[in-house]
Design a protein around this nucleic acid. Structure first.
Lengths: 127, 127
DNA sequence: CATCTGTTCTACTTTTTCTAGAACAGAATG
DNA sequence: CATTCTGTTCTAGAAAAAGTAGAACAGATG
């Protein structure tokens, strides 16, 4: 899995790392049970600070996506069969995006098509 | 239309304003052609600084949602029949959210249902 | 035992966010 | 035409967030 950091992005580095790891899992490039690199090794690979990677890992843990074993490492969790708090958080994050889509003139169908195309992009070539 | 600012939110105030205006348009509470309050009046109503509201308005303008007439005011634009740059920006913003949804264990269908429920919430009671 | 791990701590820089006040010039209004 | 309102621009500062840096600790691992 290739992770690319854009230092000049308006998206914070720790979020970029978090997003790209989630994308890697969604694409099947990383699977539940697999371990993530240590914060030191990963930070060195990406050319960022250890604490920045650490922040990404804890964000992923908060989202319920990885489990951090203290003094050991980070492991990809199995998909939860519906965690309600995750669902509510996601709903709140989808809301402004969907409002913007509607306001910009997209129809319900066009939004659904966009969502489908993104999902299909993630799930094709599933490893 | 009622706008509520949560000062302790992790969402910046200028984004909260922007989001809630978009939601108001999506719900039909504000319509294309209508004017937004002046930055001074709005800021005073919300208890925030004029420059913060100004930043929200310029963000809305960048998104193509309002037109700012210099020295005059801000007017809700008509929905564009598909602005490609808006579409690409939205696609990039949907991506990490959908990745997270998949990783957390939602199915394609469940994601579509979530999107539909949000859209229906916006479009019901359309004024 | 030596190494690697996440954790915690302090410390500092940079950027972003938010507020504040002043001044300007065009638009709108009576 | 004069007053008021408008967004714009400028400087300025405070507060928070983001990122880097280095050190030290203790459990896990080999």
């Amino acid at each position: 899995m290739i992770i690319v950091i854009e230092p000049d992005s308006d998206v914070p580095i720790y979020e970029q790392i978090c997003n790209q790891i989630m994308e890697g899992i969604a694409r099947g490039q990383i699977k539940p049970g697999h371990s993530l690199p240590s914060v030191r090794v990963f930070a060195s690979d990406l050319g960022v600070n250890m604490h920045t990677v650490n922040k990404s890992y804890h964000l992923l843990e908060k989202k319920g996506i990885i489990t951090i074993v203290p003094k050991s490492g980070a492991v990809i969790s199995s998909p939860q069969d519906f965690n309600e708090s995750s669902f509510n958080r996601l709903k709140d994050e989808f809301k402004p995006l969907i409002a913007e889509s509607l306001v910009v003139g997209m129809t319900h169908q066009q939004i659904q098509n966009l969502v489908t195309s993104i999902i299909e992009d993630f799930t094709k070539n599933q490893k």
